[in-house]
């Protein structure tokens, strides 16, 4: 931008006194009302060819005493002007901002955010924790043969152990021995049947129970199963693996306890609980794979050992997210879903 007022040219005139220069500079500074004008003022008065510089150069013609006095007052003027200039620049900057300003309080153009269902989020978090310990995520059928859901897991027909799993059966006019899986554990049998050891898998998926629903019970829910089988796997490995899992899901300082529990497809059986506000809450059932389960799948139980575990992602989510009613999970209400 061309300078509208080339004050530098005037500075060439000689004989200007310090007072005259000061008056001119101050007046001119007052009328400079943009950053551009201020800059040209600076060049005009204080620049290499500016009036103040010229005045200082002009002092050379004076005798030594006059020169001392005039020199001192000219230098004083320089620092005064510098200070004034800085002040004006600051003033001007802040007022300039207002001129071209926008309303930054208006909301931005935000790409709409979708979301994963809280069960999916929790399943992913759980499976990822195990993935990083070498467990691969796999899935299996939700409609299952009785053989895999019960028999191969050492839960014989007409055995009271079956009472732990109230079952929804497929209509037997058309199908025999088919049910909605009551847990993800049938994938233990299926995985071992189809693969040689070593095995390390986690199996998320839907399960179904013939169970009346209330705030803490659903007939339809997810589980995450886990299975590790190899030579040399011990109960201590079970504890270590699940302890590491608990640290990841519930934080490193959460108290964890392992106690004896019973599931027909493990021996010894384990319940892992965590301390939640002073109460022990069961998080998962686990145990060393029962030798009969290994043998039913064709594994040599004198050679291989393993551990298995199962947990409910909705239950964990209920704890962590303080969800008071499990039925929210499958109501698909946006007022619920969008909170997570």
């Amino acid at each position: 931008m061309p300078l509208p007022n080339d004050q530098g040219v005037q500075a060439i005139q000689t004989g200007e006194s310090v007072e005259e220069l000061k008056a001119a500079a101050v007046a001119s500074l007052d009328s400079a009302d943009s950053i551009e004008l201020l800059e040209s003022w600076r060049v005009g008065f204080m620049g290499r060819k500016g009036r103040l510089t010229a005045l200082l150069r002009g002092l050379g013609s004076l005798d030594i005493e006059e020169r001392k006095i005039a020199g001192a007052s000219a230098n004083k003027l320089r620092s005064e002007l510098e200070l004034l200039f800085e002040e004006r620049v600051n003033q001007s900057k802040s007022s300039e901002a207002l001129v071209g300003s926008i309303d930054i309080s208006l909301p931005g153009r935000r790409p709409s955010l979708g979301g994963l269902h809280p069960s999916t989020q929790m399943i992913r978090e759980i499976t990822q924790a195990f993935n990083e310990m070498g467990f691969q995520t796999i899935e299996g059928p939700e409609v299952e043969l009785e053989k895999y859901n019960f028999d191969m897991l050492n839960i014989p027909a007409d055995h009271p152990a079956r009472d732990q799993w109230d079952t929804i059966w497929v209509d037997d006019d058309t199908h025999n021995d088919i049910l909605l899986r009551t847990h993800t554990s049938p994938m233990q049998a299926r995985t071992m049947e189809a693969n040689d050891p070593p095995i390390r898998v986690v199996v998320p998926g839907k399960c179904y129970r013939y169970e009346s629903t209330d705030a803490t019970h659903e007939w339809h829910f997810n589980q995450v199963e886990g299975l590790a089988v190899d030579e040399g796997i011990t109960f201590a490995d079970l504890k270590g693996t699940l302890y590491e899992f608990a640290r990841r899901i519930f934080g490193p300082h959460r108290k964890v306890r392992f106690r004896c529990d019973f599931f027909p497809f493990v021996e010894p059986g384990v319940d892992m609980s965590i301390d939640w506000n002073g109460k022990w809450i069961e998080i998962l059932g686990a145990g060393m794979v029962h030798p009969k389960v290994l043998e039913n799948a064709g594994y040599d139980s004198t050679k291989y050992t393993g551990f298995a575990f199962g947990m409910g992602p909705e239950r964990i989510s209920m704890l962590r997210n303080e969800i008071t009613d499990i039925r929210h999970f499958f109501s698909n209400d946006l007022r619920f879903l969008t909170q997570f």
Binding site: P197, D230, G232
Partner: peptide
């Protein structure tokens, strides 16, 4: 302890 065998 942690699992020590080779992962599948």
């Amino acid at each position: 302890t942690t699992l020590s065998g080779r992962p599948p």
